[in-house]
């Protein structure tokens, strides 16, 4: 049976340490100037007057309904059988339609190939070896949970049933497979 890979970013557990950011760079040998993944730390003043930080994982959210794949004229951007959105650099003409169409700003243009690229959940490297994505492997506080939604026994399904989550920009109908556990301190922002 095909997999349906998904990830949870629990912003209560996240400390914004960028371990994921650097592990991704190390595993995927990213060119210096670009990032597949960053965690943005945003200062927040809560309604009760207290201060805090919100942690936003900036990366591809692996939509079910993929604006990037829809607009790509050559199928260079595609969703594979396991639900992961990938780029076939060979087919890419570099129109950047996908980069523009992504509501999550998840795509960057690789300075070497000049083709857009993005987080792949480490599909080519680690998943094929039966390993979790690099970011999940290193996350010091286990703020990231990765797994197969089609497997009822998977940890991600357990966690999804236990913690309240939301998806970013749900109203767009993209149905991302990146679930966010909101910071208990603040309101849910989508």
């Amino acid at each position: 049976m095909a997999k349906k890979y998904a990830m949870i970013h629990d912003s209560n557990l996240c400390i914004g340490c960028q371990a994921c950011n650097v592990a991704c760079r190390s595993e995927n040998q990213l060119p210096e100037s670009v990032y597949r993944l960053q965690v943005w730390i945003k200062p927040e003043e809560y309604p009760n007057g207290t201060l805090g930080y919100e942690y936003h994982r900036q990366s591809c959210v692996h939509c079910e309904n993929t604006p990037c794949v829809n607009v790509c004229p050559t199928h260079a951007s595609f969703k594979n059988e396991d639900g992961i959105v990938l780029v076939d650099v060979d087919l890419c003409v570099g129109c950047l339609y996908c980069v523009a169409a992504c509501p999550y700003q998840a795509r960057y243009v690789d300075p070497v190939t000049k083709a857009p690229n993005k987080c792949t959940f480490c599909y080519e490297s680690r998943l094929s070896r039966g390993e979790e994505p690099a970011c999940v492997t290193v996350c010091p506080t286990e703020a990231l949970v990765f797994g197969d939604l089609n497997d009822p026994q998977s940890k991600i399904n357990t966690v999804l049933s236990e913690r309240v989550t939301y998806q970013q920009k749900e109203r767009l109908g993209t149905n991302p497979k990146m679930f966010i556990v909101p910071n208990h301190k603040g309101g849910i922002k989508s």
């Binding site: 607009v71 790509c72 004229p73 087919l91």
Partner: peptide, 12 residues
């Protein structure tokens, strides 16, 4: 490649 690969959901 635009001329030989088509994606009918793409306006392009």
């Amino acid at each position: 490649k635009l001329l030989i690969h088509y994606n009918f959901s793409s306006v392009m």
